[in-house]
């Protein structure tokens, strides 16, 4: 899984024949059982742990920083993923019941191709790449993470968004029985996020399936998450089950929870403070007790790549 590379000349589009029909998809266990009963299938290949253990990918040097990586330990134990609790250690400690497979994603809204797709089918035509990005949390700490994924734009284009698709809305899975944080009403569930279509299509925007060479762990947003490196971490929505092309700006969870503190854009900006704390400097995770804060860079250091998206916009107003 996840390792097929497109052959030269492949179009980015899904051929209609490649898309599993919804009814077939939802009845796949039944169909497999039926096939087994008939003896038509010798062994059932479900996605096993060994299959998920490693990913094949190539490093994208152009979009990777050469800064020191944050340790795997820190990346997988210090997380904000309120679906599993609001403490930084909660996602690692309380996500073991979460089942990231099988997984499917619903594509809907203003696009020619819509439907529900098995994750494998969604990813099949694409080659995975590794990108080492800075991640800047709105709480003024940061990490450097080797993500593995696919540029979101190349995936989205296969669904042929129409001219009415001005925004892309994302939704996290809602499973209170597996996600203990969703049993409290700390945020309105399910978590939702959104991007303007040009932000979604930007080559830096990544649809990630792994980090450090391995599939995403539950606490990092398994099995599929967004990574938008020039925006605060909360924009990079985790465990995505729905992608919708919309004409109007979609609602976003943190903006709903505290509109004057978290905007739709949430671009990393050292000059626009959070109302309760400064965004001018940040703490790099892994530096230890005596490491000092470092200055935060405009658009988290991706200014050259993304500043043109916001030309003429008042970034104080559209924070």
């Amino acid at each position: 899984m996840l390792i097929k590379r497109p052959r030269p000349g492949d179009s980015a589009r899904i051929a209609p024949s490649e898309i599993t029909a919804e009814d077939v998809y939802f009845n796949r266990r039944k169909l497999l059982k039926a096939a087994l009963a008939l003896g038509a299938v010798g062994s059932v290949a479900t996605s096993t742990a060994s299959e998920r253990a490693t990913l094949r990918y190539t490093r994208n040097e152009r979009y990777s920083t050469d800064e020191d990586l944050t340790s795997f330990e820190d990346v997988t134990t210090y997380n904000n993923f309120y679906e599993f609790g609001s403490g930084k250690g909660d996602p690692a400690a309380r996500s073991h019941r979460f089942k990231p497979e099988p997984w499917s994603v619903t594509i809907s809204g203003h696009a020619n191709v819509t439907g529900t797709f098995a994750l494998e089918d969604l990813l099949k035509p694409h080659a995975l790449e590794e990108r080492i990005y800075r991640l800047r949390c709105v709480e003024a700490w940061s990490m450097v993470i080797p993500w593995i994924g696919i540029p979101l734009g190349t995936v989205l284009r296969r669904f042929e968004p129409t001219s009415k698709a001005k925004y892309v809305a994302f939704k996290t899975v809602h499973r209170p029985e597996e996600m203990p944080g969703q049993r409290g009403r700390v945020l309105p569930w399910p978590y939702v996020e959104g991007l303007r279509i040009d932000e979604a299509m930007h080559p830096l925007t990544l649809l990630a399936v792994g980090l450090y060479g391995k599939p995403l762990l539950n606490q990092n947003g398994a099995p599929l998450r967004l990574v938008v490196p020039w925006k605060y971490g909360f924009k990079s929505i985790k465990s995505i089950v729905e992608i919708r092309f919309t004409e109007r700006q979609p609602p976003t969870s943190w903006h709903l929870a505290a509109p004057h503190e978290y905007g739709f854009y949430a671009n990393v900006n050292p000059n626009v403070d959070h109302p309760r704390w400064s965004q001018a400097r940040e703490r790099r995770i892994g530096g230890g007790l005596f490491d000092s804060r470092r200055p935060t860079l405009m658009f988290n250091g991706y200014e050259k790549e993304v500043a043109s998206l916001y030309a003429g916009m008042d970034l104080r107003r559209f924070y």
Partner: peptide, 18 residues
Amino acid sequence: RAFELGGSNLGANPVEQV
């Protein structure tokens, strides 16, 4: 934990922890 005695530590963000 600051001196990492007995294999303990202050976690990923020790300053925040303290």
